[in-house]
Design a protein around this nucleic acid. Structure first.
Lengths: 348, 348
DNA sequence: CGGAAACGGGAAAAGGTTTACATCACTGTG
DNA sequence: CACAGTGATGTAAACCTTTTCCCGTTTCCG
């Protein structure tokens, strides 16, 4: 870098400690022969400055490559123009979609996005949330697994808290939730209309609020549903199939579409034909769900809309009420009438 | 909020401007009856402090719920303990995996992760990178699509720059790249050994360096490969199939596994059987690739390792050399001998 | 023509933390 | 007993920017 420094014996014009020679507002002010206040006025805009001075300042800023120090701005303004997003698993495409949506919305309004994945660990989730809370203007927790008291603590610690797929009775917390209760009833109604009676549900993570909503939905649907512990990932679905089959179901409801994809894969290995031998449904309508073989019947909810709604909740004027988002049943090839007789080895 | 303030004419005990009543180090110091320096020493650790004082300070900090202001720390230290990650598409599971890996590594070393998705737009990518550069201690660009001059600018603007799947001749830039040149040669060798001769390659984004590497690999492999414009997403793959088929290939190489999944889906619709009518291969070994029907033959490279290596490059002592990561061929069910019998055996 | 409003621009404070330096008491040694 | 060394703590500067207050000049209006 061609920075020529006059060997000023009195006082260094800029410090070169941490910022390693980055130009500061003082450098610009000196070069443009104005005060730092004027530089700020020109660059931040809005304030009255004479055109000649403004040009001089802009030229000087350009010349030294000046960019304001965000930490200093944050310190003064008390806002970092940043939101924090905490998700149980960054590798899960569902959360990735939500992250994509919210980050795009935030960027559109000039905000940055700080993320943390928690590997499905409630304690780590809590720590990350508390840590991030101090940094950001608002915090978004996706499907948090932590306890309600911890969640309250996070609410206290953060300027603004928004939840996705979790509710909390607290005055300053917004939430946007998918109506899984409705979703599960839709799926059950669909399966019932096809004549299914022996249904297995592959459960999600035990601490997931959204899993509890599904379970409530089953009770409301009035169908006898056998529960099998599973999880939320593709691998979990793959692994849970064998136990699920011991219950001799005619239909299988997966916690979400990724689980369902794992299920389809394992069923194929076992020679169980979907939907002839067994119907399979998922939840969430992941991008790949339209491309599996057969296509996955599922309950579709727009992650884009989820992100948009969540962002709305960060607006200072937003209500703290819970926004309910309902999706719709999407019927694809993975569901059909059950066979009369129990599954025998398929022979096509 | 029920904030009751005595109308203190002398001096406000804490400011309530930006931080909205958050306790500062001064509050702690006053309560513990020590100087702010001592508070800092106690809480940051390392410095000698008498046990009684330390206890008093910790108790005071606890009482007022003190947490240091990160912006102030950043300003002073010149480091935000944060890295920035820019990816073309946050919704793409491949980048989501990488993000997950790097965020976990960073968090393990007490660093935060700032993300930006760029919707595959090189200009937005450039702006995001420049913007983030000012915030973070290090910047990670995943498969950047921007031009080399722009990339150089970003390199100048950032304290530390690391690239994934892109190289740049520049003294202070680290990179970790997958050896796609090797990858496609492996895939081609596999296909050649099965007897394929008419191969179509579904191209990735035009500005992607990694696509160019693949193309170079094809030339090195010495197989005639017809190129068809496609993209990097599942949808792109789905849409490109029809044109690809006009070339009557016996094998199809997709830019990556997501494209390949879209391809499989469309082929199924068209009644083309994989691998009997057509062999399909992908690149990257996405999590779902083992679960498609048939399983996808691909070139596997560990995203976990990718993230780990990238993080290594942020260490102050790291070399700026390019780290090459090679994967390995994974043969699954999507490749087989072409159906049509060859009349002429290739002579060497 | 006098006074007030409008405007352009400078000085300085504020924002919260860390750390170099200064201070002070005390201990061990020559 | 004096002095050097050490350990504990306070003081104040520095990090960089924005914004409030203020002053001097010009312009406008009665």
């Amino acid at each position: 870098m061609a920075r020529t420094w006059s060997n000023d014996p009195v006082r260094k014009p800029t410090s070169d400690r941490a910022s390693a020679g980055r130009a500061t507002i003082h450098d610009v002010a000196r070069l443009a022969e104005v005060s730092t206040a004027t530089v700020s006025r020109v660059l931040s805009g809005g304030k009255p400055v004479s055109p000649q001075v403004a040009d001089r300042v802009r030229a000087a800023a350009q010349e030294v490559g000046y960019r304001p120090n965000p930490a200093a701005q944050t310190l003064l303004r008390g806002s970092s123009q940043t939101i924090g997003v905490v998700v149980p698993d960054l590798g899960n495409p569902y959360f990735a979609e939500i992250l994509k949506g919210i980050a795009a919305e935030a960027a559109g309004d000039g905000h940055h996005t700080l993320v943390a994945g928690t590997e499905e660990d409630p304690e780590q989730e809590y720590r990350s949330a508390i840590e991030l809370a101090r940094w950001v203007d608002g915090l978004l927790l996706c499907a948090p697994r932590m306890s309600a008291p911890q969640l309250k603590e996070v609410a206290e610690a953060s300027r603004r808290l928004v939840l996705i797929n979790r509710v909390l009775r607290h005055p300053s917390v917004g939430a946007v939730v998918v109506d899984y209760h409705h979703g599960v009833r839709e799926l059950c109604a669909h399966l019932a209309s096809l004549g299914h009676e022996r249904i297995v549900y592959l459960e999600g993570p035990a601490t997931a609020w959204s899993d509890q909503q599904r379970q409530r939905g089953f009770r409301a649907a009035g169908l006898p549903v056998t529960r099998v512990a599973c999880g939320s990932s593709l691998r979990d679905g793959y692994a849970a199939v064998d136990e699920a089959l011991t219950h001799e179901p005619t239909a299988l409801i997966a916690f979400n579409d990724h689980v369902a994809v794992g299920v389809l894969s394992r069923l194929r290995e076992l020679g169980v034909t979907v939907p002839d031998d067994l119907s399979v449904v998922g939840v969430d309508d992941a991008p790949m769900s339209a491309h599996t073989d057969p296509g996955l019947t599922t309950y579709a909810v727009s992650t884009v809309e989820l992100g948009r709604q969540a962002w709305q909740h960060f607006s200072p004027t937003a209500s703290t009420a819970t926004t309910h988002l309902s999706g719709e049943l999407v019927v694809r090839g993975s569901t059909a009438r059950p066979r009369r007789r129990r599954t025998v080895k398929p022979s096509r």
